[in-house]
Amino acid sequence: MPNRRNFLAWCAGVWGMSAGLARAQADPLAALVRDLTGGARLSAGRVSIDTPRLADNGHSVPLKVSVDNPMTAANHVRSITLLSPRNPRPLIAKFVLGPHAGRAEVSTRVRLNGSQIVLAIAELSDGSFWSGSAEVEVTESACLDAG
């Protein structure tokens, strides 16, 4: 027979569970980022993503990622990883560079499964990790195909 006290306890349990769920949903990239950095500190900055604020179609969104770095033998970008918090597979691509690149910049076109904040993480030669992000609103043509 449910009474007031165990009803409140049940509510507290549900609240706790949903808060945990909300936390997991808030950062679906957490596990991927941990794998990438090996637990090292991820600092915001030095990485910029250039992409339209309003994309014409989620199938093909232009995206340029660049890292503020001199690209020398002593100080260069080892890799740039693109992550999507809303794609069914969050790891979009990883680009491996080196001092011979001369410029830490890669452009491509990506698929985005809806509006989201895209994340780019750069791994530098000193072992540090830096991130940048860009918010993209994905729109769609009103004229869909027959499929």
């Binding site: 014409d56 179609n57 093909s60 769609e140 004229c143 027959a146």
Partner: peptide
């Protein structure tokens, strides 16, 4: 080339999409 198609298509494909629409 239509982004929606992710490919190149003919005018007839585009017209059929309008019929579908």
């Amino acid at each position: 080339y239509r982004l929606e198609w992710q490919a190149t298509g003919s005018l007839h494909r585009r017209l059929r999409a309008c019929y579908f629409g």
